[in-house]
Each structure stands twice: as structure tokens, then as C-alpha cells.
Simulated assay, not measured.
Amino acid sequence: MTTHTHTTTATAASVYQQLRGHLAELKLADAAEALPSVLDQASAEGWSLTQALERLLRVEVTATDARRLAGRHRFANLPTGATLADFDLDAASGIDRSLLAELGTCRYLETATNVLLIGPPGVGKTHIATGLGHAAVHAGYRVYFTSAADLAARCHRAAIEGKWSTMMRFFAGPTLLIIDELGYLPLPGEAASALFQVINQRYLKTSIVITTNRPVGAWGEVLGDTTVAAAMLDRLLHRSVVVTLDGASYRLRNHHAAADELRRVTTGTNPR
């Protein structure tokens, strides 16, 4: 090896280390890790400097997007991986494909429109609400899922601990707040006020999805305060999509299907 070749090799190695150092200093860890393979591919395929830089930065952008998506998923607190695509529209009653597809675009979030999903237990309300949550998370929005009972309990605890304003800011933050199972459990007296304040501070600013087994006319009974219920509904319904689902329970259908399959496998007979 000549002195010139040795010097050139040493210079290239030094520049490479400097480049790795720059990427690390800028906290571009994924690009730094991908640098050797990108440089090898660029050399093998004759990429231009622009092509090599684009590929290197694409690695970092892709990794950053994945981390942000994972962070939004963690924050969202969604109970299952249920998506709108998983929802069995053929077995559902009360919602049409075009409406579900429109909600799946998340355009309702741009106008701070609320979605009320009303129907008896087991017809798929929570599935749809969760699916809307996943769609919004993937679209880049901040989402938070809570049951009505848990929201009331957290607000009550915050009031006792002197953290009421902090809790209100928390529930005001997400672009989409999903409140599940309103009306399934009796709520304590102060819950109606807490729920109203959460809804009021989000009014015309951000969207709420609510699932409930009670028609809106019975919310005064659910909340134990007809005045608060009327004020709450006034805000929720001002800009809203109301979906009333009925029909056989999803869970019962799944249970019967599983039982029929088990009977078929174990006895060799077809279910009636």
C-alpha cells in the first residue's frame, strides 16, 4: 500500500467517523445505525449523493414516525385492537357502510363533531368506538379512551387532592376523547357535574365519542340531574352524529358460533 493510498483510506475513515458523530450529536440514532448499509448500497448501485442522503434520512423519518405512532397508541389507552375493518356490518343493525366509512376518514374531527353510539349491550358500540380511536391514532391525532365510571372517579379523586384544574386540562387535551359505557353503572352525585365540565370545555373545540345503553331521553335519570343532562346534551348534539344500533348481541352471536363449532367438532354433527 502506497503512502497516498494509506492517507486516502485514513481520511475516508476519519470522515466516516465524523459523519457518525454528527448523526449521533443530532440524535439521529437510526440513521447512524443504518449508515454503513446505506453507504455500501450507494456504492454498489452507483447512487448520487442526493439519493444516498434521501435514503439515509428516510430511515430516520420512518423510525421517528413509528415511535410517535407507538407513543400515541400507549397514551390512547384503547382496550383492544378492534378496528372498523373488523366490524361485522352484515350482522349489525342501525349503521350503514357509508357512514362507517366516512367516520373512518376522521374528517369529523376537523369540525369537532361528536359521535353518540346508542344501543343495548353487545351490539358493537365499544368495538366501533375503539375502531374510531385506532383510526384517529393512525391519522396522527391524540386520542384517549376511558369509561364514564373511571372518568367520574378520577375527577372525584382530583377534586379531593386539589388537582381539579390539572385533571380538566388532561381531559381537554386529546383531539378525540372516547367515553365508554355511560349509563351502565350508577354514577355518584358529583359525576354529572364532572362529566358536564369535561364536555363543556371541549365544546366546539374537539370531538367526543360516547357509547351508552340508554336513549338520550333517559340521561336525566342516568345522571340524576335533568338540568345538567339537558345542558350536556345541548352541547353534544349541537354538532353530532347519532348512531342507534340494535339487533342481536355481538357477544351472544360469537358465543353461539363458538358453541356450534365446538359441538360440530366434538360430536361430528351439524348444529341446527
Rank of each mutant, 00 (worst) to 15 (best):
G247R: 09
A139P: 06
T211Q: 08
D30A: 04
A149Y: 08
V242W: 07
R264D: 11
V137M: 08
G21M: 02
P271V: 03
N254S: 09
I95T: 01
W164I: 11
V115M: 05
A192L: 03
H256G: 00
M232P: 02
L49C: 05
R253I: 01
A149C: 02
V115H: 02
E25M: 00
S249Q: 09
L39G: 00
L103W: 03
I178P: 00
T80S: 15
V59Y: 03
A139V: 03
P174D: 12
E190P: 12
R251N: 08
R263V: 02
V59A: 03
T269V: 02
T206Y: 01
I178F: 11
Q17V: 07
S93W: 04
V209E: 02
T111W: 05
G21Q: 10
V61Q: 14
G140I: 05
Y203E: 01
F170Y: 12
L204I: 01
L185Y: 10
R251F: 09
L151S: 01
W219P: 00
N213E: 10
A76P: 01
N213T: 06
A194D: 08
G133L: 01
V137R: 04
A101F: 01
G224D: 01
A148H: 09
L182Q: 07
L57R: 04
I160M: 13
G140R: 09
V243G: 08
E261Q: 14
P186E: 03
A159S: 14
A66T: 14
R142Q: 15
A149H: 06
S193T: 12
S193P: 00
L177A: 05
L116I: 13
Y203R: 01
G21I: 07
H127E: 07
A63F: 00
L99E: 09
D150M: 11
G247W: 02
T211N: 04
A159E: 14
D40Y: 01
P174G: 09
A158M: 11
R169S: 14
Q51M: 14
V228H: 00
A31E: 06
L262F: 13
T80I: 05
E45W: 05
S147G: 15
A92D: 03
T7K: 12
S37H: 14
A218M: 10
A92N: 06
R154S: 09
L35P: 04
D234P: 07
H22E: 15
T62E: 15
A34P: 04
D180V: 11
V38C: 07
A159N: 10
Y184L: 13
H138R: 15
V15L: 14
R272H: 09
A191F: 00
G220E: 06
A101K: 12
N114A: 12
H256R: 13
L262V: 06
A10T: 12
L23E: 13
V243N: 08
Y141M: 02
I208Y: 05
L236A: 04
Y184H: 08
Q201S: 10
P188S: 11
P36H: 11
R263A: 15
E110F: 02
I179F: 04
L56Y: 11
L236T: 00
A158R: 01
G268M: 05
D96Y: 04
